[in-house]
Write a protein that binds this DNA or RNA. Structure first.
Lengths: 228, 228
DNA sequence: TCCTTATGTAATCAGTGATTACATAAGGAG
DNA sequence: CTCCTTATGTAATCACTGATTACATAAGGA
């Protein structure tokens, strides 16, 4: 029923002062916005120790509350991870949108490539967060409407760009746009996931993995273009 | 130092007879081959309840030994999962080799497609096992030389086939074979992983996901062939 | 002012991976 | 055959985890 107005500064707990201050100073029983605090704690936990090390209790500890407190805001650990994933997905989406905005004057295929580079770039720059938004083990895609919708939005953007490309004669014509979208998603997802899962160590050890991915993307896109 | 000969039937424990038989009948203190028993228990556990539900203790329980016993044979849970993964990888490899044997008389690209179909077919038929051999969360690829080597063998086979295809003029010539191998691996891995991770629900809900993947593979391969 | 509701805590449960000290069986050396 | 080392098992325990319950307090409207 309506958003809860943040109880502006009802007193954060973490104002130093360890081991019980002489003057009790009630110090606010309620946290203010534990939801954000816990999500933030979880994110820092992920960045420091990886997705496997995430624990509800440690997140609670970092937020300075009891281990049962998070359950007031998330029914279970999966729900917390979903919240983290949604936030990560937001950043990925923003990154893609920025790339598309920067290339708004270019041809569809160039913009499609920009989208791909933004996606791969984000995944390689934020491997653990990419892990969160992708592995089912951490968060059930189907259980989070928001995540599903954000995913779908990207897919639709890809479809739009490729349809434009087809109309402008940039795209090969012997494969349906839907098929190409699926193929391209698999390619990008696969490349990112292979990196995250440690399946790309033998490839040009000297070269940075991100650059490897980018040039693989370029080659892949070449196969989609209409022959000159 | 040398393989341990199986102590042939030194007395399995699971010969019914619950709750302590009247005549003690030592019944063999040593299990015989706990390693296999535990790996097998883990596999059945994975099949019944998924990769997330795997627990060393439950596997021990199913093998009829104490919860500390597995640690005599595996330094930790990851090592057990690695053993399971190696076995799964063996089956995947066998499936691919069978497909290649069946198509030994065909042209390189046709055999390359057979390899792809075998890979995707196996992944779609054994999603949880595919999960085990791929996600780093379950087993560290780099820590298991056997797994790495099996993976590398597939990669080499792909390279060989594509080089043959190039020599016979079946393959497009504007992209290096190594690049194509990487791209193809990403495509296949991505498709399989998307399925396993639940990222392929919206695509032709009527069609079976496996068929969807197969036709996506066919389209993808079309982009690799030299233009007629 | 009172009283409902949201939000926190402490205590507890069942389950996990891992380690330790101890017990027993196997199987070769003498 | 006997002894004794070593491989392999067990019970007990530790430090954790996710989750639930009963209880306490704060917020804020009627």
């Amino acid at each position: 029923m309506g958003e809860k107005k943040t109880v502006a500064e009802t007193g954060r707990r973490n104002d130093g002062d360890p081991a019980g201050s002489p003057r009790p100073r009630p110090r606010a029983y309620h946290h203010g916005n534990l939801v954000d605090a816990i999500v933030q704690a979880t994110i820092s936990l992920i960045e420091e120790r990886g997705t496997e090390a995430v624990s509800l209790r440690e997140a609670a500890r970092r937020a300075g509350v009891s281990s049962a407190a998070p359950f007031r805001h998330f029914p279970n650990k999966a729900a917390l991870m979903a919240a983290v994933a949604e936030q990560a997905m937001e950043r990925l989406t923003a990154s893609i949108e920025a790339a598309l905005a920067e290339t708004s004057s270019l041809a569809p295929m160039a913009r499609f490539e920009a989208l791909g580079r933004a996606y791969l770039g984000w995944a390689f720059d934020n491997p653990t967060h990419f892990q969160v938004i992708s592995s089912r083990a951490l968060v059930d895609l189907q259980a989070s409407p928001r995540l599903r919708q954000q995913n779908e939005a990207i897919r639709l953007t890809m479809t739009d760009l490729l349809e434009s490309a087809r109309r402008s004669g940039e795209l090969r014509t012997d494969i349906s746009v839907d098929q190409i979208v699926l193929s391209a998603r698999a390619f990008g997802y696969g490349l990112a996931r292979m990196h995250v899962d440690g399946h790309l160590p033998e490839w040009h050890p000297s070269e940075a993995p991100k650059e490897t991915a980018m040039s693989a993307l370029a080659s892949y896109l070449r196969t989609l273009r209409r022959e000159a």
